[in-house]
Design a protein around this nucleic acid. Sequence first.
DNA 1: TCCAGTGGTGCTAACGTTAGCACAGGGATG
DNA 2: CATCCCTGTGCTAACGTTAGCACCACTGGA
Lengths: 343, 343
Amino acid sequence: MITTRDIAERLGVSVSTVGRALSDDPRISEETKFRVRQAASEMGYVGNRAARMMRGASSNVVALVIPDIRNSFYSTIAHELSKNMEAEGFQLMLSETDDDRMVELRHLRELSATRVAGVIIVPTARPHSDTVKLLRTVPHLQLLRRHPSLGSQWFGVDDHEALRQATAHLVTQGHTRLAYMGGPTELPTGAERLRGFRSALREGGLPEDAGRTELGPPSSVDHGRQAMRRLLKGPDAPTALVLGSIQLTRGVLEELSEQRVKVPGELSVVGFGDEPGFSWWGPGLTTIGLPIQEMATGCALWLMRRLKTEPGNDGPYTSVSPGSLVLRGSTAPPGGRAPSRSH
Amino acid sequence: MITTRDIAERLGVSVSTVGRALSDDPRISEETKFRVRQAASEMGYVGNRAARMMRGASSNVVALVIPDIRNSFYSTIAHELSKNMEAEGFQLMLSETDDDRMVELRHLRELSATRVAGVIIVPTARPHSDTVKLLRTVPHLQLLRRHPSLGSQWFGVDDHEALRQATAHLVTQGHTRLAYMGGPTELPTGAERLRGFRSALREGGLPEDAGRTELGPPSSVDHGRQAMRRLLKGPDAPTALVLGSIQLTRGVLEELSEQRVKVPGELSVVGFGDEPGFSWWGPGLTTIGLPIQEMATGCALWLMRRLKTEPGNDGPYTSVSPGSLVLRGSTAPPGGRAPSRSH
DNA sequence: TCCAGTGGTGCTAACGTTAGCACAGGGATG
DNA sequence: CATCCCTGTGCTAACGTTAGCACCACTGGA
């Protein structure tokens, strides 16, 4: 690899001069700058960021730590983040945890060693204590999920309210046997969503046992299929289902298609999240829409500002976005008929 | 930040001893190792990769340079790559080009400065000459798209054959007014796919003008919608459409749903790529399936092997995967009726 | 003529880590 | 008792870059 020294030797000047010429230092004459740049370009010189970092410069890398990039939530966030950061000269490091705290820890070890400038993380249910320790040493922002032992910088959704609304919609239509399928209550988001579901039942005057629950790994499409199969079995199958995870929603849709369950005739469904395919599915999926793009942009802007203003303004910051119910054709009163398809 | 020196001072040993203890050097006594590790852990020591790299160690970062992570092709690849690399201790850098050669160049400058160990790239149509220069200095692998001025390491799809098959399927059904919508012919993949379309027409004995074409930005869902609108206008609208891009496919599906075009009654459609939503769409989308996951795994394994075996075995390497036509309900003879929906 | 000022450049150290060499102490061998 | 080897540790330099200070050759004013 070509270094400033190689250039210096070729031009018969000192390394300092080369370095200064390349960083456009006003003390260097225009003529020298020109010669240095010319030579650098010809020789294919590319500065060494590692060396620069050793001199105290901070890294220009921000890490995004998420369960799975294939989830459209996270790919949207990665995209928005990347777009906003590119303009500021930052690079994006992608770390997938697969919701495994040990993988999460290994990633954070690597990221710390790389001295990333910042981290945006969707933490696992119970991060390892070393993960917590490591995160304390770097500006970070929690996304969607919030873990109390981590900092109080958080971008999230009002999970309780979103699920309450979605469930209330079904209760209002007259459903009395409902089910909720979502992530484990270990996850704060999981707990909140379940709480929202139950709140709506209570407010609708329904008994405790009106709501069945299926909790499990929230990033597993397969688990969604299996859980759906369980819910459909037996004589007291629910007439309405509310979902609390986008991947589970996918699994449920696949299973319902395969088993040719009539939606909303036999079962009303409210999905979680919104993807292009959701509007095409069956009668069109009524779903809990989240302002992911706005949240992603918000995250990016927060982090960029945080990284550019030196003082450790790590004061608590919380931004809660509301979800919004997107009404399509997958919900109706129990035993009701499906509205006509939208296409 | 805590350094080996801090640990050394606290324990009253030398920096070398600390360094060696941490890297489990056999020359250090077990007792010393224990004390050092203890102190390191207590003090929250995290090695500095930049410093390590200065000593000649290669970086453990691999970059993935793609147009847009929201495309399920690329997110699948990112996922597989990430999964395979995590096991080997590599980190993944994500760079989105948005199919803009200047953005691509900026990213490659950064990546070079970071001394990434390897690059997997889906190049833009006409990469900047500096981009080409930079890529020459790092092990890289082209994915899907192949640019002649870059190396000959390439993982791709037999685009010609895939499109030929898809088109032949429609020609066999009796269509005589067909259309192809895909990326610009500047892209080698774009050119190949168009050529496949035309080959099938020729082999089917159809005249040159039996095939209309709509070429444009392949990563733009919006362009897909607009192009679809153009194709539907006029008296000689095609009765069959073949797609050459996943994003364009998405746009087309949205537009067809909105305009309530009867598929396959009024128009037969063969999509490109396969996503969960495609099987739910209308009558189920017949589409060109690609073995993305296998390709992604192949890429990851190739790169890992390439990075671990020192000798510059940069011999030409090419892997061509076949596409496969996934038959669903969106194709039928012209004027034919749609089969019943699958769910 | 001398001095201050200035424009342009060079020298050196430092960032944190590691590899090569040196060296001290102790036991085994001749 | 001298020599040798072995174990465990320390010293030093080097990686590429940059910041601080030093320096030299001028120019212009006293």
